[in-house]
């Protein structure tokens, strides 16, 4: 167990292993139950138990949201564009990411946090492009949370004014609820999946600001109705932007890169200190 923040990491493993270094700024005020039984508690007469009702009214995700707010503050102060990439397994997320890194790393510093239940395979694929990457293995966990990302940031040493991509665990359900501190969630859907996925997993498409419809080079071989898919996505999220891309042929990737540049520019314009650094 981590002695500073009391986090029992369970099965979560973060590459670099310096999980206990704790030079990050997020607050650690959650209580340590091992203190239980001392002090005030010890003065409590045993056997005397009077029930009382406490009104709490706290959001269950409030802990995660507090960590996410700390991450977000750090990203903004450092001029970093941080995106949370979400999809089902097999959507081509890692291929899309490696192509993006290869094409854009000469113009902007980039880094990646990879989330998977097991293996460091994806982080190795990313590092092969020359970009910094760190793997979080969630064990049985089905999503990344803001606390894990905070710890990964300690080890990653991402540069100021960089783009950071967080590749979440392949899962269209659970990652929707967990804010990591990102600027935007980007959902990747491939045309080899059904066009009704946005209706089947509405929470994820509702939470995303951008949908990348990937593997469009395969459309001639499939019965995939692109217009219908986009209509489904807009039904659960009228404001969602959609771009059609093929990470393997490169088709449409320019629109995505332009969006990345424009979105990063907006962040840099509001972080003057980081720009001077």
């Amino acid at each position: 167990m981590c002695t500073t923040c009391g986090c029992g990491q369970g099965e979560t493993k973060i590459e670099g292993g310096q999980h206990h270094a704790h030079d990050h700024s997020h607050e650690h005020e959650h209580p340590h139950t091992h203190a239980f039984g001392h002090g005030v508690m010890a003065a409590h007469a045993p056997g005397v138990s009077q029930s009382r009702i406490l009104r709490i009214e706290q959001d269950i995700l409030s802990k995660n949201n507090a960590y996410a707010a700390d991450n977000r503050q750090q990203f903004a102060a450092r001029g970093m564009l941080v995106l949370n990439l979400v999809s089902s397994p097999g959507s081509g997320k890692t291929t899309l990411l490696t192509r993006t890194l290869t094409d854009m790393q000469a113009e902007v510093p980039m880094a990646v946090i990879e989330g998977d239940q097991q293996t460091v395979l994806d982080a190795e694929r990313i590092r092969a492009t020359g970009v910094k990457a760190i793997q979080i293995n969630t064990g049985k966990g089905c999503h990344l949370d803001a606390h894990m990302v905070g710890h990964a940031l300690e080890n990653l040493q991402a540069e100021d004014n960089s783009m950071l991509f967080i590749e979440n665990v392949g899962n269209l359900v659970c990652p929707a609820s967990f804010d990591l501190g990102e600027a935007h969630k980007v959902v990747i859907l491939s045309v080899t999946e059904g066009e009704d996925k946005p209706l089947k997993y509405p929470d994820m498409f509702h939470a995303a600001d951008l949908m990348l419809l990937n593997k469009t080079d395969l459309l001639p071989h499939l019965n995939f109705d692109v217009e219908q898919c986009i209509a489904h996505a807009q039904r659960v999220n009228p404001g969602i932007r959609v771009m059609q891309v093929s990470a393997s042929s490169g088709e449409g990737m320019r629109n995505w890169y332009d969006w990345l540049r424009a979105t990063h520019r907006m962040i840099l314009d509001s972080a003057p200190e980081a720009m001077e650094a």
């Binding site: 029930s51 009382r52 009104r55 009214e57 706290q58 995700l61």
Partner: peptide, 8 residues
């Protein structure tokens, strides 16, 4: 998604 009350 809230904790509303506790009996303690």
């Amino acid at each position: 998604m809230r904790i509303s009350e506790l009996e303690v």
